[in-house]
């Protein structure tokens, strides 16, 4: 396989009960690239990410990360692969029984021989990278939404991952905080040279953080292109989505929802 490809997905299908969420999805993500997957709510963007990390098992299809077939890995190897991953969850998913620095240092504590003091030092450093110095001893419940996301980001980068997943990084934040997060993502990419996959339906964010954008619709990637290519697309469905119009080929299942 081409070694420039970090993530390769072929024929990925998954259904929950009678609902076909992914239907033969194909996607390649290059090494060091920032790929943004856009698509409506409930179209399976999170499901896609959860498959790549191995949190969900597909009905059919293959997923390769850095040349490893994710689906054939045993518990130990999957764990080793996951050490190369960092993930920012939609609502940060901080461990609410741990303080901020223990959250950020969780991976280090589990997987390295660093002492508590050393872990705390690394955690502080990562917190500074996301603009949060001096909150090490707060509990997650004491943080605002934007701070939680940034702590989540610090936790995601603590192990110096090769691939970072962002699940709706700007959802639920005010426009300025959303842009702060966007800046951080761009900044981290420049500093850490990681591959990243983000899922979002916030087009402002997508344009800002993406090298390439892929549109997920009805369980497949219907278009992949650079930011400019997507902006000037001739695909009616993509155009309707990026301009945010209620009129077009995408019909919302308002009555049945």
């Amino acid at each position: 396989m081409n070694s420039d490809i970090m993530i390769h997905i072929e024929g990925l299908s998954k259904s929950f009960g009678r609902k076909q969420v992914l239907d033969g999805l194909e996607l390649d993500v290059m090494r060091g690239e920032s790929m943004v997957v856009i698509g409506g709510s409930g179209t399976g963007k999170s499901v896609l990410i959860k498959h790549i990390i191995g949190l969900l098992k597909p009905d059919s299809g293959r997923i390769y990360v850095d040349g490893h077939d994710v689906l054939s890995l045993g518990e130990h190897d999957l764990g080793e692969l996951r050490k190369k991953f960092g993930m920012l969850f939609q609502n940060a998913a901080l461990f609410d029984s741990f303080s901020v620095w223990e959250n950020v240092g969780f991976g280090l504590k589990q997987h390295t021989r660093l002492s508590s003091a050393e872990v705390r030092k690394v955690a502080s450093e990562k917190l500074r990278m996301v603009g949060l110095a001096g909150i090490e001893d707060l509990m997650p419940s004491e943080l605002s939404g934007g701070m939680r996301k940034r702590v989540g980001l610090a936790r995601a980068i603590a192990m110096e991952p090769e691939v970072i997943f962002y699940d709706e990084p700007t959802t639920g934040l005010d426009p300025i905080m959303a842009d702060v997060i966007n800046e951080l993502i761009v900044d981290l990419r420049k500093k850490l040279k990681v591959t990243s996959i983000s899922i979002t339906h916030d087009m402002a964010s997508a344009y800002k953080i993406a090298d390439r954008i892929a549109m997920l619709y009805k369980g497949r990637i219907i278009e992949v292109g650079t930011v400019d290519e997507i902006r000037n697309t001739s695909n009616e469905i993509v155009r309707q989505f990026i301009t945010g119009s209620a009129v077009g080929p995408i019909t919302m299942e308002v009555t049945r929802a």
Binding site: F89, A93, D96
Partner: peptide
């Protein structure tokens, strides 16, 4: 249950912890 619905259990897995 709270850890599950707030994705903290998924977060554990992504931090390579079973």
């Amino acid at each position: 249950g709270t850890m599950r619905v707030t994705e903290q259990i998924d977060a554990l897995e992504t931090l390579a912890t079973n």
